[in-house]
Amino acid sequence: MLHIKCPHCGLRSQNEFSYGGDGTIKRPELNKEISDQDWNNFVYNRKSPRGKHVELWQHISGCRQWIKVQRDTVTHEIFQTADVKQDIK
């Protein structure tokens, strides 16, 4: 079971969180023209990297905040977690 450091609550077990997928996908701005390709890249297409992955989790049984987690998709090592508004590079 993963051990995830919620930036608001501290280290908690994975079963307090729910997963939210790729955290690098940015929703296109509202009311803006956008190509089919760009829209599909937002809705459907994913890099799904083997290795470092920035992803979203929600501390659903805790502070209910969405957070960003940088994790290795092979070893599950977590390198960094951050408030969802911050960027992880």
Binding site: G20, Q58, I60, W66, V84
Partner: peptide
């Protein structure tokens, strides 16, 4: 609820 929180916290903070 999670859907709303996602947009409020992540997309349109």
């Amino acid at each position: 609820l999670s859907h709303l929180e996602y947009y409020l916290q992540f997309v349109w903070p």
